[in-house]
């Protein structure tokens, strides 16, 4: 098993921390992981992305130009990464902020209205864990038990009081994700 994921959106959406939770979850299940962020001029221009690779074997290159899954959270990222999903791969996007939906016909496409849903619930900060939950229901590469351990590991101790809300958001995300293609 080897899954190469790109998570891309605006800085502040929790893109990097979503990747970190996922990577830590992989470690808790004793898998190999790499987490490679964009830290260059893109970051300073407001967009952020991270490549996470999870594998049951040693990971050779942490750099990839094609992805099994792309999680896209703004239009710039859609423009950049839609074409880089491997044929037969998965594209997940939040409809909020997407003006031009994807046009590929050779991949599975899912939408998740996590921005609207987390705002409606008054828990805008749970946005990223909701998306993560949606992703994990499509690609259950890590068992939920280890996801919860990874979540705890990736949060500082002062934020542990938010663990139950994050766990609920992960479960809720699995329910609101919709396959559109």
């Amino acid at each position: 098993m080897k899954e190469t994921i790109i998570i891309a959106g605006f800085g502040g959406q929790g893109v990097l921390s979503m990747g970190k939770i996922l990577a830590y979850s992989g470690i808790m299940q004793d898998l190999e992981v790499t987490w490679m962020p964009s830290y260059g001029p893109e970051m300073r221009g407001g967009t952020a992305n991270v490549t996470v690779i999870i594998s049951d074997k040693r990971i050779s290159s942490p750099i990839s130009d094609s992805y099994d899954t792309a999680i896209v959270l703004n239009q710039q990222s859609m423009d950049k990464f839609e074409s880089k999903v491997k044929p037969g791969g998965v594209l997940i996007y939040d409809t909020n902020g997407i003006t031009q939906p994807p046009t590929r016909t050779d991949i599975e496409i899912y939408t998740i209205d996590a921005a609207a849903e987390s705002a409606r619930m008054g828990q805008a900060k749970m946005f990223n864990t909701m998306i993560l939950g949606g992703y994990l229901s499509v690609k259950p590469i890590v068992e939920m038990e280890y996801v919860m351990q990874g979540l705890k590991k990736s949060l500082p101790e002062r934020a542990w009081k938010f663990l139950p809300q994050n766990e609920a958001a992960i479960k809720h995300g699995a329910q609101i994700i919709k396959q559109v293609q």
């Binding site: 990577a23 190999e32 992981v33 790499t34 987490w35 490679m36 962020p37 942490p62 750099i63």
Partner: peptide, 10 residues
């Protein structure tokens, strides 16, 4: 290099 410095792994 910058990438290994910024990259996270186990």
């Amino acid at each position: 290099d910058g990438a290994i410095g910024q990259m996270m792994e186990k």
